[in-house]
């Protein structure tokens, strides 16, 4: 393959950036889900969840 360095560096950088994005979104989601579960466990809920009603605009 001609110019292998340029081609594989391009694909490598792209893969690295995409994987970092995926990992960041995934880990962020996991941490937030854990925090929500901790709050729920300590008895703090959303007002709509605690009353069992969902606020909805007409």
């Amino acid at each position: 393959m001609s110019h292998a360095f340029y081609i594989f560096t391009s694909y490598g950088v792209t893969a690295l950036v995409c994987l970092m994005l995926i990992a960041w979104v995934f880990l962020d989601g996991r941490s937030r889900r854990r925090e929500l579960a901790e709050l729920e466990a300590s008895g703090i809920r959303r007002r709509s969840a605690s009353t069992g009603q969902e606020t909805r605009k007409a």
């Binding site: 937030r32 709050l39 959303r46």
Partner: peptide, 14 residues
């Protein structure tokens, strides 16, 4: 990412 941000804001409010 939108879902994560909604969760982040709910956590802050709670």
């Amino acid at each position: 990412a939108i879902r994560n941000e909604i969760w982040r804001r709910r956590i802050a409010t709670q």
